[in-house]
Every structure is written in structure tokens, then in C-alpha cells.
């Protein structure tokens, strides 16, 4: 599926690396392909900055999937019914699967999973700040599904049309599963909201705590967003942070109403003129603090990740040693064992 335009210039060169002299021609072909909404594929020529931006974004996304398992896994052993336990386990499993798809997408750009994990563990790459908030009650599992997965969908649906093929295709698979995540969260909250007064209060408290952090998931306001303009030109990004945030608010307001829950914003109201809901100011100081590492769970999350990785080192080494003995190559990393059903 290499794009016609990019292929014309990349010719038959297997690695797609042009002679430095010809870069301008390659750049033109790339620009034309992007402008024509064609997909850029791994072997096509692409500007270094485009590649770097994608690796950074896909890595951050992959890291978010696997760190995002933690706050919800926190409730697997305490789920209050077997049905809910099965749903939650399946959701957390999906997030691990999303991590796998995305690390593979990053790999098509020449950056392996081990390198990216190393960057995550050493703090050189980030994950979504939302996962630095704690899950204090069972209702938080519902609030995460409804709001956090809901915000993720709003962000990610446009990524299904991202100019980079492997990322776009990974997002198509992921978005299908995210909508199940959002629904189960909504349904969990609905059961609580219609339940006993204690359950209702638990649901309201969770929504109070997760609402503002969910709005922050769309990133800083447009006038403060570093990477937005270039990513829009490259069609990695298709809508601005503020546009997506507004879309999310407009979706959530009627849903909160059907849930019988209140969104914790006294300024939230329909604006007839704009055709959108107005909402109150976001506390960006909190956003930047959490991003800097000062959120309630930053240290806990990364420590658990590092610990799992370090404590698993002997297992991965064993799998590699076994593979070397039995296939004569040292290619095994433990990745190949039993992950998928025959």
C-alpha cells in the first residue's frame, strides 16, 4: 500500500533512504501524498521530523495503554460481582493488547519495544497524565470507562485517518474496543446511580473527581500547544485540542443527565449562539504539575512498571536462553510464548 507519489520518488530503493541531494524531490512527493490524503507506509520516504513525531506520539500512546492498566487492575480483586469482575478483567486485557498493537506500530518506524520501554522506565518518555490519579472506590472504574475511555475515543477516532498507515490501522482496531470500554463504564455508573443512596453517592464522588482531569486529557489550550500546527499539516492530527475538548463536553452533558449524575462545573450551560456548551476554566496549574511528576500517583505508577519489568527479567532471559538452545538463535525474548491462542 505504498503511496503512489512517494513510491515514484523512492523508486526501488529497499530502505527508502534517498541520496541527500534528492531530498527536495522526496519532500515534494511526501507533501503531495499527505495533501492528497494518501497513506504513508513504513518503506516510503518520510521527513526525519515526521518520523520522530510519530515515534514520540505512538510511544506515549502505547505507554498510556500499559500504565493505564494499573488504576483499573487495582479493583480486579475487589470487583463486587462475578459479572463485573469478568468485564473489568476483559477491559484490562484489551488495554494490554492495545499496548501490543501500538508498540508494533512504533516498530515499523524502526524503534523497538525494548528501547521504548527503557525510555518510559527512565522517565524520558511520558504517558497520559490521567493515569496519575488514584482509583479510590469501585465507582472510579465506572468513571474511568465513561470519561477517560470516552475522552480517549474522542481523541482517537480522528487518528483512524492519520496519515501514517500502521498507526491509523492500529487505531481502527483500538477504537472498536474502546467503545465497549466506554459503554461498560457508563453502565456501571448507571447501576450505582440507580442503586442504594450509598452507591449513588459513590458514583457522584467519582465523577466529581474524574471530570476535570478528563478535560485535561485533550492537552493544553490551542494557543499553548507546542506540536499542534505541524502535526495538523502532516495530518497526524486533524482537530485542535480545544475543538476535541468541546466535542467531548457536548457528548457528556446529556449522558450525565441520563445517568442522574451532576458534572462538577457550575458554569456548564448550553450556549444557543455557539451551538455548544460553555464550561468553566480548567486549572492548568494542576495539569502542568501532574505532567512534571507531582501528581498523586506518578511515582507509584512508574515504580510498579519498573518493578514488574525488573522482576520479570529472569523470565525473559530464560525464554531467550531456551530459544537460543532450541532454535540456534538468540532471538527469543519471551514474546513468543503462549500469548495467543492456537
Amino acid at each position: 500500500m505504498a503511496t503512489a507519489a512517494a513510491q515514484r520518488t523512492a523508486g526501488s530503493e529497499a530502505d527508502g533512504a534517498p541520496d541527500p541531494v534528492d531530498t527536495t524531490a522526496y519532500q515534494h512527493a511526501f507533501d503531495a501524498a499527505v495533501a492528497a490524503d494518501e497513506r504513508i507506509e513504513p518503506r516510503d520516504w518520510m521527513p526525519d521530523a515526521y518520523r520522530a513525531t510519530l515515534v514520540r506520539q505512538i510511544a506515549q500512546h502505547a505507554h498510556s495503554e500499559i500504565i493505564g492498566m494499573q488504576p483499573e487492575a487495582n479493583w480486579i480483586t475487589r470487583a463486587p460481582s462475578l459479572r463485573r469482575k469478568a468485564i473489568l478483567m476483559a477491559k484490562v486485557q484489551d488495554e494490554a493488547g492495545h499496548g501490543l498493537y501500538l508498540y508494533s506500530a512504533a516498530e515499523t518506524l524502526g524503534t523497538g519495544r525494548d528501547e521504548l520501554l527503557d525510555k518510559l522506565h527512565s522517565g524520558r518518555q511520558k504517558y497520559s497524565s490521567i493515569f496519575n490519579y488514584p482509583t479510590l472506590t469501585w465507582a472510579d472504574v465506572g468513571a474511568i470507562g465513561w470519561l477517560v475511555d470516552g475522552a480517549a475515543i474522542t481523541n482517537q477516532v480522528p487518528l483512524c485517518r492519520c496519515s501514517y498507515g500502521p498507526y491509523a490501522r492500529a487505531m481502527v482496531r483500538i477504537c472498536k474496543e474502546e467503545s465497549f470500554h466506554q459503554r461498560q463504564g457508563y453502565e456501571l455508573l448507571l447501576a450505582l446511580s440507580k442503586g442504594t443512596p450509598e452507591q449513588h453517592a459513590m458514583a457522584q464522588d467519582a465523577v466529581n473527581r474524574w471530570w476535570w482531569p478528563s478535560l485535561m486529557m485533550f492537552g493544553p489550550p490551542d494557543d499553548e500547544s507546542q506540536h499542534s500546527a505541524q502535526s495538523m499539516t502532516w495530518k497526524i492530527k486533524r482537530h485542535s485540542n480545544d475543538e476535541l475538548r468541546q466535542r467531548f463536553v457536548d457528548i457528556c452533558v446529556p449522558q450525565a443527565e441520563s445517568l442522574g449524575l451532576t458534572l462538577p462545573d457550575p458554569e456548564l450551560r448550553w450556549n444557543e449562539e455557539r451551538g455548544h456548551h460553555d464550561f468553566g476554566p480548567i486549572d492548568w496549574t494542576e495539569f502542568w504539575e501532574v505532567l512534571k511528576g507531582n501528581g498523586p500517583c506518578n511515582e507509584q505508577r512508574i515504580n510498579q512498571r519498573r518493578r514488574a519489568h525488573d522482576e520479570g527479567a529472569w523470565v525473559r532471559e530464560a525464554a531467550a536462553a531456551y530459544a537460543a538452545k532450541h532454535t540456534g538463535s538468540a532471538g527469543g525474548t519471551g514474546h513468543e510464548t503462549g500469548a495467543t491462542r492456537a
Binding site: 500499559i66 492498566m69 494499573q70 487492575a73 480486579i76 480483586t77 462475578l82 459479572r83 469482575k85 469478568a86 478483567m89 476483559a90 484490562v92 486485557q93 494490554a96 493488547g97 499496548g99 501490543l100 508498540y103 519495544r113 510498579q304 518493578r307 514488574a308 522482576e311 520479570g312 527479567a313 523470565v315 525473559r316 525464554a319 525474548t333 519471551g334 514474546h335 513468543e336 510464548t337 503462549g338 500469548a339 495467543t340 491462542r341
Partner: peptide, 29 residues
């Protein structure tokens, strides 16, 4: 086995162990 979620030695094992958790939980129900 569900206690392993988020602690497995390699990402593929998160998926594999969760498969087993879900099968067993289904049988139990």
C-alpha cells in the same frame, strides 16, 4: 491469576494470563 494484572514479566503474558483468568471465571460462574 487476576492478581498478576499489571505485574506480568512481559506484555504478552498480561494477555495470556488474562485469557486464562477469563476462561476460569466463566467456568466458575
Amino acid at each position: 491469576l487476576g492478581e498478576w494484572a499489571g505485574h506480568a514479566p512481559v506484555l504478552e503474558e498480561e494477555v495470556a494470563l488474562a485469557n486464562i483468568v477469563l476462561d476460569l471465571l466463566g467456568q466458575a460462574r
